[in-house]
Design a protein around this nucleic acid. Sequence first.
DNA 1: TCAATATCTGACTTCATGGTCAAAAAGAGC
DNA 2: GCTCTTTTTGACCATGAAGTCAGATATTGA
Lengths: 232, 232
Amino acid sequence: MVKKSTAQRRRSGPKWARRPEDRPREILAAALRVFAERGYNATRLDDIAAAAGVTKGTIYYYFKNKDALLLQLAQAGDREEFARMEVLLADNAGSYSSQLRTVMRKGFAEPTDEARRQLRMVYLALHSDEPRLFARAVQGALVDGWALIVKLIERGQATGEFRADVDGPVAARIFTSGLLLQQLWRSSLGLETLDPFDNGRMVDSSIELFLHSLRPTVRLRAVETRRKARPS
Amino acid sequence: MVKKSTAQRRRSGPKWARRPEDRPREILAAALRVFAERGYNATRLDDIAAAAGVTKGTIYYYFKNKDALLLQLAQAGDREEFARMEVLLADNAGSYSSQLRTVMRKGFAEPTDEARRQLRMVYLALHSDEPRLFARAVQGALVDGWALIVKLIERGQATGEFRADVDGPVAARIFTSGLLLQQLWRSSLGLETLDPFDNGRMVDSSIELFLHSLRPTVRLRAVETRRKARPS
DNA sequence: TCAATATCTGACTTCATGGTCAAAAAGAGC
DNA sequence: GCTCTTTTTGACCATGAAGTCAGATATTGA
């Protein structure tokens, strides 16, 4: 994507060129690549600089610091993600259940395109490297995501598709956070070894749990009140 | 609890005493206090040493390193927590719903006793200081907790109190992780400001969501199949 | 009393990268 | 060509607590 060797050491040409228009984009692109490969902490600013064909000083000419670099990356990626989500929902005029299913799947299933996959890798590493920065990076997207989910739940409640007494805001937060934490622990930390679990099952089951918790029920009194036969 | 000034500088007495039986306990107790107050990273081993009335070298005489100190602390606390939980459940021979409610409340509501509260503070700080260590520290308790919850769900399924087709292991993991991540973000990171939420509501609503997702339902077909009137 | 040993001390070492900045180089304008 | 400004370079710096270890001190046992 970035032409690296184009003007590299043209015989007795200038040592470097001024390219203020392109540098920021190139640096950001390089940062995404390198962060995704090595993780946030393990990435040296010199690595990014090298990958972008500049030196560290140049990064500081265009960005405040390492955190800012990461934050810009995350914001851009999340904006794109949300734009896609809206298109997806516009196309999907099914029940609110199916819209919620779409949102959750899109949000938590493995991404197929490379850029999105890279951003996820960055997030995974970031969570175990710098949780505070991670929180800053994902907060915006999460709050927006929660608002979207709550909106869908409320509309479903209005039509009677979902039960009226469900706590929508809490539901949105609990299910997304649960899925997220599971994924974080499983990929970057060692949980997968200790407690192996398939991500597809995790996502699908969670979504079903989520939708089931929203659906109206008829309590089966006979079962509900039943007690164990023998007292312990 | 720890007699600090008892033999402190008795006139021309010995500079220090050998107390190999008590040192480890005292160091651990001091570590819990200081970690809870200042957080893991901000705590200097010299601080703990001072609080325990020894010097840093002594800590290294009894413990491998700072992490080991933390890990021992966590393990001891969690063992105690589980013991209490079992007693609590033995006393509570109600429905499986109510047992699950008890477990979740005990696990996530604000603790009342000081030691337990301190351990929570330690965990909160640890999560944002050293996520990998945090994961190691809580993994054991979580895996055991999940097993307990799954057991209760399965028993409830056997009696018909819960629906048969629920994915118990996923349910256990999602709800606990969701609640946990919410609490972590809200206390040690800045989420509470951006997205204020009452912890009591969070816990209670989550539990209800959890139980509702386990309960058998009678699908209301008329509502379930309904689609939005206008196609997009 | 005097080793021998267990316990404890505290000064010292160590280590690597994010960030700074003066100066060099490029290029625009005249 | 010659300034002047913008862009880029790259050598340098600052930092701070975890962990080590040689030796000091207490205790035990004979």
